[in-house]
């Protein structure tokens, strides 16, 4: 009957098992840490697994709180306005750049202090198995021959999957209609034959690739990632130089003390390295890729300028 109590017992037990020592008083963290989660679906689930593992590392609960909406704007605004003491962190992603340049967030990535990158997610491009398209090149040739536009299902206009698909089809020089379905519906629309292509996260296609209904043409990263579905990179498949990947990580409001960041970073590293996290990540189709705060910061910065120029080029930039 008691969530909190069960959780406390579990936490206490695991804290004892893991560390064997109790942190001294008045040391961070003294109270529960709130981890704001911006999206639903697998992003939320993996965030909860991470929070659960970090709780065990820190010996103090890390609570995943859902603050969805506005493409991430709601959650980012909330965390930015909290005190920079490490008790409010955000499960963030490249969405900080997309939502900023879309014009819905008055501040950008520099309102936050990076803690650690946790993993990478690489969008993939899928078609129906009966489409008659064997590869990306094959599709490009056959569709160009018909002269009709390709219908591509994405998560939302200005979303990361939109950006990815736009970058890909721009490189391939194809005429495309983007159909925004919101989180998670594009695979169903592809199965039903209302669209030609879906650009989504690999885990969403797994059951249908296994059953043979769908096939994945390529993944959008420059380097091949060992995800749940084995597929060539789009660059290999004909879209030369394409490199779009999404990272997920943790960040705190700017000006959070470095020793607090260091503590959270260490807990994030231990959590990411734990067997439980690896197993859950594998089952959810998430690729763990830990990166410490400083390097993570550099990546955020360079990705931000890439996204800005990409969105500008595709006519999606409003800020």
């Amino acid at each position: 009957m008691r969530v909190a109590s069960i959780k406390t017992v579990m936490l206490a037990a695991s804290a004892l098992a893991v560390s064997g020592h109790t942190p001294a008083r008045a040391e961070f963290p003294e109270k529960p840490i709130e981890m704001t989660v911006l999206f639903g679906g697998s992003a939320q689930t993996i965030g909860q697994v991470l929070a659960d593992q970090m709780s065990k590392q820190l010996g103090s609960p890390v609570v995943a709180v859902s603050r969805p909406g506005g493409g991430g704007a709601i959650g980012y605004s909330y965390v930015k306005d909290t005190a920079p003491d490490g008790y409010n962190i955000v499960w963030n992603s490249n969405s900080i750049s997309t939502v900023h340049y879309q014009g819905n967030l008055p501040f950008g990535y520099d309102a936050f202090q990076p803690i650690a990158r946790i993993g990478m997610e690489v969008p993939v491009v899928a078609v129906r198995s009966q489409s008659g398209w064997d590869s990306l090149q094959d599709m490009v040739e056959k569709v160009k021959a018909t002269g009709r536009p390709l219908k591509v299902g994405i998560s939302g206009l200005g979303s990361f999957t939109h950006l990815t698909a736009a970058a890909l089809f721009d490189k391939l020089g194809m005429k495309v209609v983007y159909i925004p379905y919101g989180e998670g519906r594009a695979p169903a629309e592809l199965l039903a034959g209302r669209i030609d292509v879906a650009a989504q996260w690999p885990s969403q296609f797994v059951p249908h690739v296994q059953s043979g209904a769908l096939k994945v043409l390529c993944q959008t990263g420059a380097k091949k990632t060992a995800g749940p579905i084995d597929t060539p990179t789009c660059a290999e498949a004909g879209a030369e130089g394409l490199d779009v990947t999404m990272w997920r990580g943790l960040a705190a409001p700017a000006n959070t003390p470095p020793e607090v960041i260091a503590k959270l970073e260490a807990a994030a590293k231990a959590a990411t390295d734990s067997e439980e996290f690896k197993k859950a990540a594998h089952n959810l189709g998430f690729t763990p890729a830990f990166l410490p705060a400083s390097e993570f910061g550099q990546q955020i910065e360079s990705d931000d300028s890439t996204i800005a120029s990409l969105m500008d080029q595709l006519g999606l930039k409003n800020q």
């Binding site: 008691r2 969530v3 109590s5 959780k7």
Partner: peptide, 8 residues
């Protein structure tokens, strides 16, 4: 709310 349900 705070203890049985874990709502903040």
């Amino acid at each position: 709310m705070g203890h049985l349900l874990g709502v903040y």
